[in-house]
Each structure stands twice: as structure tokens, then as C-alpha cells.
Design a protein around this nucleic acid. Structure first.
Length: 428
RNA sequence: GGAGGGAUACCAAAGUGGCCAACUGGGGCGGACUGUAAAUCCGCUGGCAUUCGCCUUCGUAGGUUCGAAUCCUACUCCCUCCA
């Protein structure tokens, strides 16, 4: 990914709707026109995986790298121990050091997939702020760093002021200083001149640009950029599925579920999402917009979005499986699935193991969770809502033995359009 | 401190001795339609029982009655008004 240097990165970001706030866009444009810049974005280990929302900033780092700049992905091994108050209404619960270390490692692994660390011209870097913060002694912290912040300006930040009513610990209150210090460190070590982050990071980013300015007697200017929170046309935040967050970790959200999530986005949102989450050119996206307008039922835009992003996050092989599973599940071809595909498709689907082959299907529905009670199970069967291995079942008294078994031991139960349950038959 | 009103199923809200497992609306879930969409229409929405039917539920605990969500008593919580 040694991409040729491009001066149009800001224009591209702007056209994709990716710029929310910035310190001084003209000054940044000016700086960018003079040559490659080093920039960074931080990710705190607040969970054992990044989710689809994080992708907005991660991919922005990648966009900068593709444009010839030097991206640094920072994992917050130290800041994750403190807790960022930004965008939160209540105090965080501290996680143990062991947990944070474990999560830090997982994030590093995930992040590394999106950047090129081997490039000969502009390789990416991965850093952990634990490396410089854990050894920071309290006297240095208060004398050399803290002296550059006034309580007044700290209280004025949204992240703090919104919490004064309900309360905020000194720990979280101090968070912005650590993030500012990160920016300072990266500026000193790597000449990092730009920090990007989500819209809730504005206060922390400007704390950093301020600190750097003061540490250099006002002679140095660095830049900050925030990206918008991605919302759907109904105004709600993008990235939550019925079963919770959409994770990048395939163990937490299977590539199939990930693909499905994107395939199902609303017509009103898909173009915006293509701009944010894919590297397709704006011309290509324009064509897809035409498709949505003229042949919405084809869902070419959604399909493209799902394919592009799934490939990016999970790779070509996982994408193929996801497409295959989708084909099988929604076009009545469950029988064509391989054992591995069955496992993936039903990874996070409720399941049950049955040893009594004389059990009525009604009970199987209850045991797998497809129905809450036998009464409800009968209702579903009567309504024609139940399918076993693609065959609609309407017989209330049918037993496990009388049904067809997939691969000799599976009952793939579908209730309604998209609710799947797996029942495995075992020997008693 | 005084006066009054209220607590019903996921939410809202009827019911004021038997016809109440509880009107109605929303939500949810199914079905039809469709683009794995939106809108619309139809059905279901305490549990068990293949039928009769049985069991648990209307703030909590008791009581009256053949029979209570509905009447009585005590308790808990909430709201409004006057101080």
C-alpha cells in the first residue's frame, strides 16, 4: 500500500461526510499540501473487541495511509485503566489490570488488519500509551503537564460539565490530561501532527493540541479532526443489531451475522454508509445511488456494502461463506450447506441437544427456545410459521423421529422469516 | 402536619361482586403481500391439557362471600392540593 501521495484527502473525507469538527481546516489543508503528515487515533480497551462503529475512525486512518500519510494506531493500555468520561452519563466501573491487558492485546490484533505496517514509503505504527504513562511519576505529571491545564478550561469541556450534576471522580476528570499527553508524546517521538477521533473526542483532542502548543511556547501548531457519529435516517445510532453491538471479532459476531446486518440496512441509509465504510470511489457510489432509485428491490447497494465491508473485516473466505449461508437460508437450500457452514450459520443461534427421538416437535420448539411454551409452540405450528430443514410442518403431533434429519443429526428449525434454532440429535 | 387521588398483564388504559385470563390502544410475535424493505390487511399475545377442563395472575398480607380485580381491614409505594 505505498499509494502515491494525494493532496485531496480532506476533500475526499468531506465528500464522504466524514468531517465533523476541526481545529483549522485551512491550516490543515495547507500543511497537507506540503507533504505527508503523521497522524494518530486512539482506541481504549473498554471491551474485548472493537465494534462496527470504531470502523469509521479505523478506516479513516487507512484513508490517510492510502493518501500517503503515516498513520499511528494507539491502543490505550493506560487510559483504558482510567476511563474516558466522554459521551457518558455515569462513572465507569474500573476493569482489572489483567483484563485491560488482555483486551489491549486483542484490539492491537484487530487494528493491525486495517493498516499496512510493511509499506516501504509510509508504514503504519502501533503504539500503546501504557509504555509512556505507566512510568510517569506524580511530580512530573503535576509539575510539567498539569501546570498547562486550568481547572476552568477542564470544567468547561462537555465531557466534564455534563457530569458535574451527577458526579465525576477525579480519576475520570483527569482523563483528558492523559490523552493530551499521548498526543504530546507522539508529537515528540514521531512528529505526529494530527489527531482524529469520534465526535465525542473533541474535548480530549483540543486538550492535546493546547498542551503541545504550550509545551513549545506557542510556536507549534498541531491539528485535530473529529468524525461524525453515524446515525440512521430515523435518527438513531448506527451499529446496534437486535442482539446488541455488531462486533468485529468473528467469535462475537459471526461474519455471516455481520454480512446480514449490512445487507439489511435501509435504502435511506445505504449510500451514506457506502461513503463511510467502503473505499469505493464517489463515482461508483453515485452509480449505486442510481440503482437504489431505479431498482431498489435489487438491493445492489446493500449487497455491495455488505460484501465490501465483510471482505475488509473478515476476508475473502469468510465473505464467501457468509454469501453461501445467506443463499442457503433465504433461498431454501439449507441442505447444500457444509458442516462448517452449518456451524457458522447457527453459531449464535439458540440450540438444544435431544436424546429422546420420540419427543414431539412441540417440545423441541420449547427446548430450543423457538417457543416460550407448548401452547405457543402449537400456535406457531398452526399458523404455518414453523419449518424444519426447509420443510413446512403443520402436524401438531409429529415427533422427532418422523422428521427428516440433516446430516443424520440436525434439525434446522425456522420460526417465522428469520428466526433459526438448531436441534442436534444425540444417542441416549 | 392536614385533605384527596391512585397502584391492573411488556407499556398505556378500561373494568367496580359472578357473563374476567380480564375491553381497547401501543409494542411484540406469526400469516398474507413484498425487496430478507416500508406501508397495508388478518391472526395470536399467563401456564398446563390433543377435547371437557384445570392451575396461577389485577401493589402486599389478611378477611367477608357459594363466588372478588371488584366489598372490608392493615401495610407498602406513588401523585396532587392546602400548610
Amino acid at each position: 500500500m505505498s499509494g502515491e501521495f494525494s493532496m485531496d484527502i480532506l476533500k475526499d473525507l468531506q465528500a464522504r461526510g466524514l468531517i465533523y469538527q476541526s481545529t483549522d481546516l485551512d491550516a490543515l489543508q495547507d500543511r497537507l499540501s506540503k507533504g505527508p503528515i503523521t497522524l494518530y487515533c486512539g482506541f481504549d480497551p473498554t471491551a474485548d473487541s472493537l465494534h462496527i462503529g470504531h470502523l469509521v475512525t479505523v478506516l479513516t486512518l487507512r484513508r490517510f495511509q492510502l493518501a500517503g500519510h503515516h498513520p499511528i494506531a494507539l491502543v490505550g493500555g493506560a487510559t483504558g485503566l482510567i476511563g474516558d468520561p466522554s459521551g457518558r452519563t455515569s462513572e465507569r466501573t474500573l476493569n482489572s489490570r489483567e483484563i485491560v491487558t488482555e483486551w489491549t492485546e486483542k484490539l492491537k490484533k484487530q487494528l493491525s488488519r486495517f493498516l499496512d505496517f510493511e509499506s516501504s514509503s509510509n508504514p503504519a505504527k502501533m503504539v500503546n500509551n501504557y509504555d509512556w504513562i505507566h512510568s510517569l511519576d506524580v511530580i512530573t505529571f503535576l509539575r510539567d503537564i498539569g501546570k498547562n491545564f486550568t481547572i476552568n478550561s477542564m470544567l468547561a469541556k462537555e465531557s466534564v460539565s455534563s457530569r458535574l450534576e451527577r458526579g465525576i471522580s477525579f480519576t475520570e476528570f483527569s482523563y483528558m490530561i492523559l490523552q493530551a499527553y499521548d498526543f504530546y508524546q507522539l508529537h515528540e517521538k514521531y512528529q505526529c501532527e494530527l489527531q482524529v477521533g469520534g465526535s465525542d473526542q473533541w474535548g480530549n483532542i483540543t486538550a492535546g493540541t493546547e498542551l503541545i502548543r504550550r509545551m513549545h511556547e506557542e510556536k507549534v501548531t498541531v491539528h485535530g479532526l473529529t468524525l461524525p457519529l453515524i446515525t440512521k435516517s430515523d435518527g438513531t445510532k448506527f451499529g446496534k443489531s437486535a442482539s446488541g453491538a455488531v462486533w468485529l471479532d468473528p467469535e462475537k459476531t459471526s461474519p455471516y451475522a455481520f454480512y446480514q446486518f449490512l445487507l439489511n440496512v435501509d435504502d435511506h441509509d445505504v449510500i451514506k454508509l457506502l461513503k463511510v465504510f467502503t473505499f469505493l470511489s464517489l463515482e461508483e457510489i453515485k452509480e449505486l445511488e442510481q440503482e437504489v432509485a431505479t431498482r431498489p428491490e435489487k438491493r445492489v447497494a446493500q449487497r455491495t456494502l455488505a460484501e465490501e465491508v465483510t471482505r475488509l473485516v473478515h476476508g475473502e473466505e469468510a465473505l464467501k461463506r457468509a454469501v453461501n449461508i445467506t443463499q442457503a437460508l433465504f433461498h431454501g437450500e439449507i441442505r447444500k450447506l457444509t458442516a462448517q457452514e452449518i456451524a457458522e450459520a447457527f453459531q449464535d443461534v439458540p440450540s438444544a441437544t435431544i436424546t429422546d427421538h420420540q419427543l414431539p416437535l412441540v417440545d423441541v420448539l420449547v427446548q430450543t427456545g423457538a417457543a416460550k411454551s407448548k401452547r405457543e409452540a402449537r400456535e406457531f405450528i398452526t399458523n404455518g410459521a414453523v419449518t424444519v430443514n426447509d420443510v413446512k410442518v403443520t402436524d401438531l403431533t409429529i415427533k422427532v423421529d418422523e422428521l427428516d434429519h440433516l446430516a443424520g443429526k440436525y434439525l434446522v428449525i425456522r420460526r417465522g422469516k428469520k428466526n433459526y434454532y438448531l436441534c442436534e440429535l444425540a444417542q441416549a
